[in-house]
């Protein structure tokens, strides 16, 4: 547990000092969302209809953008070797890195998402559900993305490769995330969708550290 918090703190400190990754992800997220009203036109009804979907897809792409750096820096400077042969389970250390990644990219996305909701005429009923669905959904992106990041270590153009590997896996998350917001806008219960997202999150939390650690052990060979 000590090692978990040490590694978490180190990654947060690195992200804070280098800064560029988090800022890049948020700016990308905002720019992508802003492109939609510019291309579709300022029609209030159309924008309100697509707002949840646009925000979700943009969040997904923005999360992908920073994914390939998750293990790459440690891989390149030899830290990954030391993490794999440390006396702690690699799975725990993976979980610490994923949590740091979510705190530095996923959480800022959630914080700016209401602002973009206003921009796209998202109705007031949808805000809380959108934040809830992103709160459950973005950690899944980080967790599943970690498997892709570990598998593509050392590959050329790993960023593109990760997207191709991982984006199809996010389709269920996207479907339930967007449909939760749609249900709220139509005045229907949103609990089932949020519960399913919660189940996805639990499943990813159990599976991802294990799969990522196995891929990392392969990568250092």
């Amino acid at each position: 547990m000590n090692a978990f918090s040490s590694l978490l703190k180190r990654d947060l400190r690195l992200a804070f000092r280098q800064g560029s990754d988090s800022v890049m992800v948020i700016v990308f997220f905002i720019v992508v969302v802003v492109l939609f009203p510019l291309s579709i036109g300022p029609e209030q009804k159309i924008l309100a209809r697509i707002s949840a979907g646009v925000i979700w897809v943009a969040a997904l792409l923005a999360a992908m953008l920073s994914m390939d750096r998750l293990f790459a820096a440690d891989y390149e400077d030899g830290s990954l070797d030391l993490l794999v042969i440390s006396p702690h389970p690699t799975e725990i250390l993976v979980l610490a890195k994923v949590l740091a990644h979510w705190l530095t990219t996923g959480l800022p996305l959630i914080i700016v998402s209401p602002l973009l909701g206003v921009f796209l005429y998202l109705q007031a009923d949808g805000f809380w559900v959108m934040i809830m669905s992103l709160l459950l959904g973005t950690p899944i992106l980080s967790l599943i993305g970690a498997i892709g990041a570990a598998l593509t270590l050392g590959a050329r153009r790993s960023g593109v490769l990760i997207s191709l590997l991982i984006l199809p896996l996010f389709i269920p998350v996207l479907i339930f995330g967007v449909s939760a917001v749609d249900a709220a806008l139509m005045g229907l219960p949103t609990r089932p969708q949020l519960l399913i997202l919660g189940a996805f999150l639990l499943f990813a939390t159990a599976l991802s550290p294990w799969a990522s650690a196995a891929a990392l052990r392969q990568a250092v060979e």
Binding site: L7, E76, D77, G78, D81, L82, I85, S86, H88
Partner: peptide, 25 residues
Amino acid sequence: YIGHQNAVKGALSVNENLKIWAEIY
């Protein structure tokens, strides 16, 4: 294990670099 690579993070201070490995190990 001391390999070819130094596992040193440029953004962290010398002290912090050593401390993180001391804590993990």
